[in-house]
Write a protein that binds this DNA or RNA. Structure first.
Lengths: 183, 183
DNA sequence: AATTTCGTTCTACAGTCGTTGAATGAGTTG
DNA sequence: CAACTCATTCAACGACTGTAGAACGAAATT
């Protein structure tokens, strides 16, 4: 019931929310601590006081949960990947978009993407009975990243406002062929 | 034979080359005019004098040629797309990488990517006998962008140093299925 | 030879950035 | 009520940025 700690958690969360939004909208470099502070209706010094540095703020703002691929047979993995694709198309997972937006210019963000992809293809390549398994898994990651980027960030015509299910259906044969061994 | 105009074209080209390299390596925002000037062994003021502004320098540095897709039957288009993929994997087209590196944070670069994609799917959607043609063409663009980004910019493991032909063969079924109408 | 052109450099300005440390004032604790 | 904690603000520093304009000197023109 302590008003003090409650208030702190509140403003801290407000700062994090605005940071996520701005990082997702304009990327790491163009997002200024001053802009985050203004959006959160707070002094810039407070952001520093709570998070230490812009780098640490970015790290906190882009923390992600557990990898959503569980493994299984190639067909099961393909279905899980399609579900992952669908969810990445439907809502806008703002912390993911913050990382994606920054991955090409901010080394730390690129590293996070590589790590996430690594989590994926670990499970994927287990399921693919092929000596190209690692490569195929990496290609799948690249394809999923490309579609998410094309839709949410570059906003390619016809892709930005299409029905998610329709996109998933269009890509189903591709994902299935990529998670199989034969050509 | 005039020493003067020759010298100017020479240094201008040297500036453009270094600008392309730096834009490709670190993106628009992190590439400073001072850094370009230093790399080209020239004064920063000279870069301004020749190109007017950083924005115009970027435009000149990322000028591209004609769209490489010619159209035809779905199978022919698929083959052309695979050739495009192969060439984008083999050498590093540094002016393309400059645009790709900056597309997520620099609006102008994003616009250029949309325009290039537009050139593509114009030809692509003509060849696909389907009411989803536009969407399928956009998905193809996103896939190609994703693979190029994953290989050259994010440097995903196993994708960054794989044999281009191997990647092309892995993606052939996907591209073919995306340029067909039936599921 | 005198004058103009122009490739190139130097210096400086105004703005923005991340970051810091002191100051304030209300809430908590003894 | 006094002492203290701490969420928050204020003011400022040093570094870096894109950009402008004056100045110099060698090549081109007359």
């Amino acid at each position: 019931m302590s008003t003090r700690a409650e208030q702190r958690r509140n403003t801290e969360a407000r700062i994090l929310a605005q940071a996520r939004r701005l990082f997702a909208e304009t990327g790491y470099d163009r997002t200024t601590i001053r802009a985050v502070a203004t959006a959160a209706e707070v002094d810039p010094g407070l952001v520093m006081h709570y998070f230490g540095s812009k780098e640490k703020l970015f790290a906190r703002a882009t923390e992600r949960g557990t990898p959503p691929i569980r493994g299984g047979t190639p067909e099961q993995v393909a279905e899980q990947l399609l579900d992952l694709l669908r969810s990445s198309l439907a809502d806008e997972p703002v912390e993911s978009l913050a990382v994606l937006r920054s991955m090409l210019t901010h080394p730390e963000a690129a590293h996070e993407v590589r790590a996430a992809s690594h989590d994926h293809w670990g499970r994927i390549s287990e399921a693919i009975p092929d000596d190209q398994a690692d490569l195929r898994a990496a290609v799948v990651s690249a394809v999923l990243i490309g579609v998410a980027v094309g839709r949410h960030l570059i906003k390619l015509d016809h892709l930005a406002d299409a029905d998610p299910d329709q996109i998933v259906e269009i890509l189903r044969p591709s994902i299935r062929s990529l998670t199989k061994a034969d050509d």
